[in-house]
Nucleic acid binder design. Structure first.
Length: 587
DNA sequence: ACGACAATAT
DNA sequence: AATATTGTCG
């Protein structure tokens, strides 16, 4: 208590220790939400304070930053990420922070370094490592004794815009000989991360203020988040509003279509034929799905190589499916319904039905679990969807996780209300039974969840190791989590409160990371996301439709989806290499 | 090279 | 405060 910050200078040199002695007098704040780790760590420390909650740690630090010489924090924690903690600490005070984690992934380590961590210790922490951390405390006082009193954050809070330019160029010049560490950091814009928690807070604030009355300053107040500036909020608000605008536009566009269908002359096709465009009975149509458009694609050749049981994919017949005509009105219009299409697909592909389930229930792949959370149903299933360059044991059946036409939850849990695919993936809409209007907005996130084919998202009580070796995706009625555990597809702010609460309540989390090569190469993660999202857009918005790229199936069950009319022939790459063509006669 | 995002400038 | 532009990142 009585001790002051300068006391750190008195930290005994290592020599004075016996075989192993933690530097006397060094006050460590250790943060880890894993109690066991915390205990282990504590055993190595002398004078320490521990907490399992980053927020508590922050509080302690804020209340008296002079009480601690150094902070050691775990990287992965539930409520607050270690990085976030690090970020806030380095923003608000000048206490060295050491990260620890069992993850030695270079990127993660780099992230720590970039955020200003003084060290990155790999778990399990060994004595030798802990023994030396005093150096960081010393170094701090040695190297910037003056800056000591001025927290970095404070300086950054009130930047003088006018002087910015000059400063920046100066930094560049100075870069040559200076402390590379701090300076390179200073050069970069330091940005805050809008974590789930933050966004949730933001949303709450906006909600309570009312969308039109929400201005940065007030939001900031309501959020009550130190470490965040008004500018931060303003920026986020800008994004938020943009997203809002976009979303509105989309919705309007859609309802327009639904009502008028003007883009194709106000008529609806009265006959629709679905056929599978295979080259002949029993042939696997390993068309690249680009061949039709004249692009050949070497990847697809690879595909046929990798197919282990070609018979599995045989298409039994090439039976056009004639759908009943109905001219009642838009909702009754007969387009190929996803169920019908699926039906045909499955029939022709010889996909087995589930035991004695009602005729429309199918199960593809392994259905792990169906759950209900806060009234939202979701389920996990196995998706063995692979990207084109990774087709080793591709299994076409498992591309479609489950399906049901009934509005009652069947074995699959949800009615399939639509589906889409691109050359990489097939996506399905499962409706958890909510209002159709919400469906559209959130639909793309469904895709994302599915498209993130090598990630596992599941309820917390599913063990991380449980799915090892398989590619699992958990899908909720709407919304999905991406590799990072963030909601994907549309900005979180636009997800609506349901999703927000669902995810925000941290009942869901990412339990398995995708393979590294999928994450890094070609931004696969992102392209995957956005392409599916694009597909959705295109399917729903004729103007955006790009004939040669967009493949989709949609259904009439759901007004928003039914708003879309098929006017031409589209190619559906239902799964890599298998190509179906939907012929829609012109009116 | 591009889109998303957040900082920064106007 | 709102909007436009810029810098970073993957």
């Amino acid at each position: 208590m009585s001790e002051k910050n300068d006391q750190v200078g008195q930290i005994p040199a290592p020599e004075n220790g016996k075989e192993y002695q933690f530097p006397v007098g060094m006050r460590v704040l250790a943060v880890d939400d894993d109690i066991v780790c915390l205990q282990k760590l504590a055993a190595l420390l002398r004078q320490f304070t521990v907490t399992t909650e980053a927020t508590k740690a922050l509080k302690m630090l804020r209340e008296n930053k002079d009480n601690f010489d150094i902070v050691i924090t775990d990287v992965q924690m539930l409520e607050m990420d270690g990085f976030r903690l690090l970020e806030i600490i380095s923003l608000e005070m000048d206490i060295p922070v050491i990260m620890m984690s069992s993850n030695d992934d270079i990127k993660t380590v780099m992230k720590g370094i970039e955020h200003g961590a003084r060290d990155y210790l790999l778990k399990p922490i060994r004595v030798e490592e802990i023994k030396n951390i005093w150096q960081h405390v010393i170094r701090k006082t040695l190297f910037d004794p003056d800056k000591q009193s001025i927290p970095k954050g404070a300086a950054d809070q009130n930047p003088k815009p006018a002087k910015r330019h000059g400063e920046r160029s100066k930094v560049k010049e100075a870069q040559t000989n200076n402390l590379s560490d701090e300076d390179s950091l200073a050069q970069k814009r330091q940005r805050i991360a809008w974590t789930r928690e933050l966004r949730a807070k933001f949303c709450d604030a906006v909600k309570t203020l009312g969308v039109d009355k929400a201005v940065p300053k007030k939001i900031l107040e309501l959020m009550n988040e130190p470490g965040i500036t008004r500018e931060n909020v303003a920026s986020h608000l800008q994004k938020f509003r943009n997203a809002m605008k976009k979303n509105d536009a989309r919705t309007i566009q859609q309802s327009d279509n639904g009502v008028v269908s003007s883009s194709i002359g106000g008529h609806l096709p009265n006959t629709t034929i679905l056929s599978f465009d295979n080259q002949g009975p029993d042939s696997v149509h390993c068309l690249d799905g680009f061949g039709v458009n004249g692009h050949s694609n070497s990847e697809m050749i690879q595909f046929s190589h990798h197919v282990q049981n070609p018979e599995t994919f045989s298409i039994v017949s090439q039976k056009p499916l004639s759908l009943p005509t109905n001219q009642q009105g838009i909702l009754q219009q007969r387009y190929p319904q996803a169920p019908e299409i699926m039906n045909q697909m499955w029939q022709t592909m010889n996909i087995p039905r589930l035991g004695n389930s009602p005729s429309h229930h199918y199960q593809m792949g392994n259905l792990h679990q169906q759950s209900d959370f806060n009234g939202l149903k979701y389920q996990t299933f196995t998706s063995r969807l692979r990207m084109v360059d990774d087709l080793m044991d591709m299994d076409i059946y498992s591309h479609i996780p489950s399906y049901s036409t009934s509005s009652e939850p069947g074995p699959s849990g949800f009615p399939l209300v639509g589906c889409t695919s691109n050359s990489h993936s097939i996506g399905v809409f499962l409706d958890a039974g909510s209002s159709p209007s919400i469906m559209l907005r959130d639909a793309s996130t469904d895709f994302s969840a599915i498209a993130q084919n090598d990630s596992v998202v599941g309820p917390q009580n599913e063990l991380p190791g449980q799915y090892e070796g398989s590619n699992n995706v958990s899908c909720m009625g709407r919304g999905g989590l991406d590799f990072r555990g963030q909601i994907t597809g549309v900005p979180l702010d636009m997800q609506g409160s349901i999703m927000e609460e669902f995810i925000g309540s941290s009942q869901m989390k990412l339990v398995q990371q995708p393979p590294e090569h999928l994450k890094s190469e070609n931004n696969l993660h992102f392209s995957c996301c956005s392409s599916t999202d694009d597909d959705l857009n295109a399917a729903l918005n004729p103007d955006l439709r790009k004939e040669e790229e967009i493949d989709y199936l949609t259904t009439n069950d759901n007004p928003p989806l039914s708003a879309f009319l098929w006017q031409k022939e589209f190619t559906i790459n239902a799964a890599k290499g298998l190509q179906f063509v939907v012929n829609v006669p012109s009116i």
